[in-house]
Amino acid sequence: MAIKVLVVDDSSFFRRRVSEILSQDPNLEVVADARNGKEALAKVAEFKPNVITMDIEMPIMDGITAVKEIMGSNPTPVLMFSSLTHDGAQATLDALDAGALDFLPKKFEDIATNRDQAIRLLQQKVKALGQRRLFRRIPRASVDLSESNRAARSSQSTFNRNDKRDIAPVVNASFKASGKQYKVLVIGTSTGGPVALQRILTQLPANYPHPILLIQHMPAAFTPAFAVRLNGLCKIQVKEAENGDVMKPGCAYLAPGGLQMLIEKSGAYGRIKVISGKEDMNYKPSVDITFASVSKVFADKALAVVLTGMGADGREGARLLKTAGSSIWAQDEASSVVYGMPQAVTQAGLSSKSIALEQMANAILKETIGR
Rank of each mutant, 00 (worst) to 15 (best):
D245R: 06
N282V: 15
A361D: 03
V44F: 00
P75Y: 00
M71F: 05
M71V: 05
D94V: 05
V195D: 02
I138Q: 10
S83G: 11
F291C: 07
N114T: 02
Q343M: 07
G63H: 05
V7H: 07
R199A: 08
V170F: 13
P249M: 10
L233A: 05
L129M: 08
Q359S: 06
V246D: 12
A34M: 02
Q24S: 09
R229S: 08
V305F: 06
E242I: 14
R229L: 11
I200Q: 04
Q347M: 09
L93P: 04
A318T: 02
A292N: 06
S286G: 01
P256A: 08
R132C: 11
L365K: 08
A196Y: 00
R133G: 13
N162G: 09
N207F: 07
N160R: 14
Y182N: 07
A66G: 06
K4Q: 10
A363F: 03
I200P: 00
A128N: 12
K353T: 05
M247S: 10
Y253P: 02
P205C: 07
V338P: 13
I138T: 03
A168E: 12
L84C: 14
V7E: 08
V67E: 01
T223R: 04
Q156V: 10
I263E: 00
L213Q: 01
L254M: 07
G349Q: 09
A241S: 11
A220E: 15
T92M: 04
